[in-house]
Structures are given as C-alpha cells and as structure tokens.
C-alpha cells in the first residue's frame, strides 16, 4: 500500500498540532465548516500593523485538515496580511510535501481559507 498522503510528518502534526488552542486577546476570529464533512474550525488572530502577531486554531478535523492548519498557522506568523491573501493550495501542498487528491483539497485549504475570512472580516 502506498500511503501517499499519510506521511510520518502529517500523522505527527495530527497528533500534536502546533498553534492549537485559543487566544484571549485576539483581534480577528472566524468560525468555518468543512462542506464535505461538517467539521468545524475556529481561527483566532492577533493582527498588529498589518502583520500576524499570533494565531491559534481550534476544532475537530481529519489528519489532512489538522496537519495543514498546524503548518499554515506556523507559516503565517509575522507575515504581512497582504502576503497571506495571495496564498493558495499550491503553497499548502509545498508545506505538506504531498499531493492532495481532488476530494481532499477542501480539507487541506480549510484553515487557510478560514484565516483569510478572519482577516477580511470586520471585528
């Protein structure tokens, strides 16, 4: 069996994701649902001077969505919000280091899309 999507790193992040939890003093927040499975994700950010100072995510998810959330929340820290708005599935694939099957693209991009919505939402 070729476990192309379920590499060691992904399973590790699934079990021990980075940036999992809540922020008390967030400036931006968004709740989103994965249309495919109904899983809920909550993203909270502290944005100062157009930069992400801190970020956390919460919720239940599959290995692909949790690993992606862990990686992308790491990646956006200290990044400019304009830069974040340009990120897409290709960037996620690079972070994950795997190919994502078409049916799972929504899982892989869920956290990123939620971050973008949080940033664009007036709090």
């Amino acid at each position: 069996m070729s476990l192309s999507m379920y590499k060691e790193q992904i399973l590790e992040l699934y079990k021990n994701p980075n940036n999992f939890g809540e922020l008390n003093n967030f400036t931006h927040e968004y709740h989103e649902f994965n249309q495919i499975c109904g899983d809920e994700i909550i993203v909270q950010l502290i944005i100062e001077n157009e930069k992400v100072k801190d970020i956390k995510f919460n919720g239940a998810g599959c290995a692909i969505s949790v690993a992606s959330a862990s990686l992308i929340t790491d990646y956006v820290k200290n990044k400019d919000i304009k830069e974040i708005s340009k990120l897409n599935i290709e960037d996620i694939k690079k972070l994950l280091g795997i190919e994502i099957s078409p049916g799972r693209v929504k899982c892989a991009t869920l956290a990123l899309e939620t971050i973008k919505r949080a940033i664009n939402k007036e709090n």
């Binding site: 069996m1 070729s2 476990l3 290995a63 692909i64």
Partner: peptide, 28 residues
C-alpha cells in the same frame, strides 16, 4: 481516526467507501 482519513487510506487500496454526513446532518 477521522472518517475521511479512513476513506482516503482505503482509496489507496482501491476500495471505494463513503465518508461524511451522508446527507443526514441531523442524524449525525
């Protein structure tokens, strides 16, 4: 193990199953 992870791993063995809420969200 999330049901979609199960379905993806089975898919790698050419086994097609359905995972998710099956258009029955209140039942979930």
């Amino acid at each position: 193990i999330h049901c979609h992870d199960v379905a993806s791993i089975l898919n790698e063995d050419k086994i097609a199953i359905r995972a998710g809420h099956h258009c029955a969200m209140p039942l979930m």
